[in-house]
Design a protein around this nucleic acid. Sequence first.
DNA 1: GTATGTTTCATACGAACGTTTGACATGCTG
DNA 2: CAGCATGTCAAACGTTCGTATGAAACATAC
Lengths: 212, 212
Amino acid sequence: MLSETKTRILDAAEILLAQNGLSATSMRAITEAANVNLAAINYHFGSKEALIHAVFARRLAPVNERRLAMLDQVLKANPKRPKIRGILRAFALPILETAFQPTNENCPVQLGALMIRLYTEPAQVVERSFNEQMASTARRFVSALHTALPKLDNEVLYWRTHFCVGCLVHTMHARPILLAVSNGTIQCDNAEEALEQMLPFLEAGLTSASNS
Amino acid sequence: MLSETKTRILDAAEILLAQNGLSATSMRAITEAANVNLAAINYHFGSKEALIHAVFARRLAPVNERRLAMLDQVLKANPKRPKIRGILRAFALPILETAFQPTNENCPVQLGALMIRLYTEPAQVVERSFNEQMASTARRFVSALHTALPKLDNEVLYWRTHFCVGCLVHTMHARPILLAVSNGTIQCDNAEEALEQMLPFLEAGLTSASNS
DNA sequence: GTATGTTTCATACGAACGTTTGACATGCTG
DNA sequence: CAGCATGTCAAACGTTCGTATGAAACATAC
């Protein structure tokens, strides 16, 4: 079981890392926000780097579990020709729900802002987190899409999967941009609403003719 | 005209900022890479923040000029119903070419990695750069897409434009991910090749039925 | 109740940070 | 030549960084 102190550190770190980035978030800021002693991070996690790894692992592990469970259901329903919409939904819904769910009542921070660090922070810290958590999941989904779209070139499929991930990542973390560009019209705080917009877009992209 | 020292600082800063992020890049690292004195940044730019702003401005200004010029051509060719593919191309090609063009012969750094900072770094530094450089350009393109897709809901259009930006951003900076997921198959270093994959995907997404 | 292992705490360390300063070199202008 | 900007430079400023340490506080077991 996690100790009280450990979870308080993880909670505070998650918020601050998402808001300020990895290297801009100091251990002093984290421990002060968590109301624990400065030395507690090194005692419980060993180093700042290890703490960051733990923050990502705590969030990504259950998301990927849910993703694969949903994917299994989709594949079981139509083993020969699984529904594209279902595959996309299995990949996007778990992480979107996590991204749109506030960490706690006081701080409605976007977890999408945390996830985006996995893509942008160049540190090896993050690379390790990413490989551990995402590599096998990504492979499973690409393979499922390959089954669903057998006519598609392998190369084209990789590209389009890449585009889908781009849409998803952007949707998770760039809500402020959408709000600004739409002149305050679109303030999305709902995973299902985002999905409803995203899935038709992605499915149409995936199934489009290559060279029209 | 820019002084020799000033451009050397900008060049070095651009590479390091792209590689390591904003707050993880120290002024000492920049000045050492540029072979100039530490005080030169504060002398020529005033502060680290102002330098970062200058780095972005130097790259984004010409990109957005080209974008708008290309957009004008597309609109002039078909004022009533401009070609979607043309609009997308006008938005994507200039920045993709910049992203895929190495800064110098020794360091083939992806400028996409620099651009992504505009989206992820939470600093107000970046917010200012983004607003100055991108706000009006974004408005022009959304309006052009509105003309090209008059039947589309405003809300849906905003969402889909958002998705297009996500694809583009991800394509620019996440080439290593595409390389890894495709098992080393796809090593894209060519703007036209990326565009060829991206444009059919985006156009199909933009024109898809909303609630299929 | 004393012993043992675990967790918290104040405090300190050396290093690196962004910025400032004043001396020094350089080039143009009168 | 003198005068004055314009750049450059080494050195130092005060802060903040991640980490380490040893004593205090706590729990549990005998």
